[in-house]
Design a protein around this nucleic acid. Structure first.
Lengths: 342, 342
DNA sequence: TTTAGCACTCAGGGCTTAGGAGTGCTAACA
DNA sequence: TGTTAGCACTCCTAAGCCCTGAGTGCTAAA
């Protein structure tokens, strides 16, 4: 599609623009070590690249900057891998070497390290509880009418909710029920629990426990199905140092977006679940991130995706570094999960 | 200290400035309904008020704006109460009428309603677990070496942590210990638990349970003492619509502050624990909130303060409305707590 | 095919000017 | 003696203008 020279020029221009955030002129490109042509030649090629839609000019006498397609082409064909700094690599390794922290804590630290190294905002979605298996179920009565239910999963996640105790249900029958559920449901993935109860335990409950209809309503409260992944953020203010966010309006739009979990989660959805995904600018179909890009990757356990981790920065982001870093990070994170839960 | 006329003028000027965010001129003040003097007279008084330090001028030919002391005087002596909108009052009442939500959920909704009505940022600190009483303790083993500990309090709060199971400790002895702790410690405030264990249960443990030294180390992990209050935020981006936050630098400073829990918590500390507290500008002793004010109030249960809820806005905030609203809100919230836990 | 040369374009900074809001002072008035 | 009208003065702001420099596109020569 592009000649080799055009690719050289496009790559040089993108990388120059990523660093300096100013439109790049032909002279600047021609002075780079990897370019061996005069400014005039570059100008010709740049005019062609602009016609093809890879470059844009903010106004006639300014240099060029990459268009969305320009970034796309750069990411898909030109950028290649980048070696990660030794010290940064070390920080990642050290994080996943620790054993004792709760999963949530490790996740928070992972997100945090990612935002610190990249200087962008980093977001983690998940891990979903969907697949987690029931380890232990407990109901703690607070008053006659109110209790707290606890579900501990095999990954150590605790789901807690406040539930209403139906009229006429005795403490001992609740206990009986909980015991039954624990013996029958232990090891079952959370998303199957409800089905199991109705298919297999219904008759047993009705035989062994009095007031079983009321108890079923309690079970309904305990086993609700919002098993969605949680969101973890770090470095939400990093992006404020970027020159494209001088305008408070844009800052507000983005910060508001961050508070809408579902919208953020949607930014991560993808068809091809595995591997690194780069969504550039308007590919995200969301006003607030029109001039942002999102690089994200799935982490998985036993071949099944658990969630996604990603970096959000301006479209003028250092894709090369972010993608390479994310590759390493996700691999190490998945390895860590395997070691702990696999 | 001030003549009545000076107070009239100061009040008018503060209220005018709060609405329009522009320095207020003598003409504007003299045109208000509650002022019956000519602009020239106002000018004389304003010059005096400036000399006394209650007003400032950004430059010679601009109007005046309140200084920090000006706001202080206004808040302390001039503003008076304000009737809360019927619809807003209703929203508050409706919130606290609901019964079933978990405390955390109610708290989040309270903060949210406060930020929506005021259009500033609202923050809640606490409630501290300090005083909560132990309802139920549970240890769920995940693997041989790792377990999850759960503490349910009488308010329905669940404290969970991942703990390490010492070598050589059997499942049954853990169970024994948990049972013992539950019978002996139920109803004891959390901050007393550790003392109790060492003073009264030590000998009993050593008699009944094998490996009791290892078990004690487990207990130490379970009963850690970070019972600090959590922070809840809402409307963090509201403040971005204020003209004093046009500058992204200031936005960043504030957002960064929000991520430092301890610094935020310190903003709420106070000597006189009860009642409404207004901290204006530099009274907060923190660069990032130099041009912000914080109005906060304690909520309490059985005469004991549980935490504080507050509003953060620009120094040019609508103190009258915020203070009045907070009075109502805190009273209703405390009443709600009493009904539920009192 | 590449490059040097040259005329042209246009944003941004600096400077000037006009307008207007608001002041302080003075003198007249009740 | 306190209050008010009048007036000269200050100084910010926005608008207009010019100039500069970076960068371009085109043309002609190498």
């Amino acid at each position: 599609m592009l000649t080799e020279r055009q690719e050289q020029i496009l790559r040089a221009l993108v990388e120059e623009y990523i660093v300096h955030a100013d439109p790049v002129g032909s002279r600047t490109v021609s002075k780079r070590e990897d370019i061996g042509f005069s400014a005039a030649t570059i100008r010709n090629e740049m005019a062609d690249l602009e016609e093809m839609g890879f470059l844009e000019q903010p106004h006639t006498s300014a240099g060029r900057m990459p268009s969305q397609s320009g970034y796309r082409y750069y990411v898909d064909y030109l950028m290649g891998p980048q070696r990660i700094d030794r010290s940064e690599l070390l920080a990642v390794r050290r994080l996943f070497a620790s054993q004792m922290d709760a999963l949530e804590q490790t996740i928070q630290q992972t997100v945090s390290i990612l935002s610190r190294i990249t200087n962008y905002t980093s977001i983690l979605l998940g891990p979903e509880l969907y697949d987690n298996k029931l380890k232990h179920l407990q109901v703690v009565p607070l008053t006659d009418r109110v209790a707290v239910s606890l579900i501990v999963t095999d990954t150590g996640h605790v789901d807690q909710r406040r539930i209403r105790v139906p009229e006429g249900v005795s403490l001992s029958s609740v206990e009986q029920m909980v015991n039954l559920l624990n013996t029958k449901l232990s090891g079952i993935p959370l998303h199957r629990l409800k089905g199991r109860v109705y298919r297999e335990l219904y008759s047993e409950l009705s035989r062994h426990v009095e007031h079983y209809e009321s108890l079923l309503s309690m079970i309904d409260q305990i086993l609700v199905d919002d098993l969605d992944g949680r969101l973890f953020f770090s470095g939400t203010t990093n992006i404020l140092t970027q020159p494209e966010f001088r305008d408070v309006e844009k800052v507000k739009a983005l910060m508001d977006l961050f508070e809408q979990s579902d919208a953020v989660a949607r930014l991560f959805t993808t068809d091809h679940d595995m591997g690194i995904q780069v969504k550039i600018g308007q590919e995200n179909h969301l006003e607030a991130v029109n001039n942002c890009s999102i690089v994200s990757a799935s982490f998985s356990l036993n071949g099944r995706s658990l969630g996604r981790i990603g970096v959000l920065g301006p479209t003028r982001m250092n894709y090369r570094k972010v993608v390479s870093l994310l590759e390493v990070l996700v691999e190490d994170f998945s390895e860590y999960l395997r070691r702990r839960y696999g």
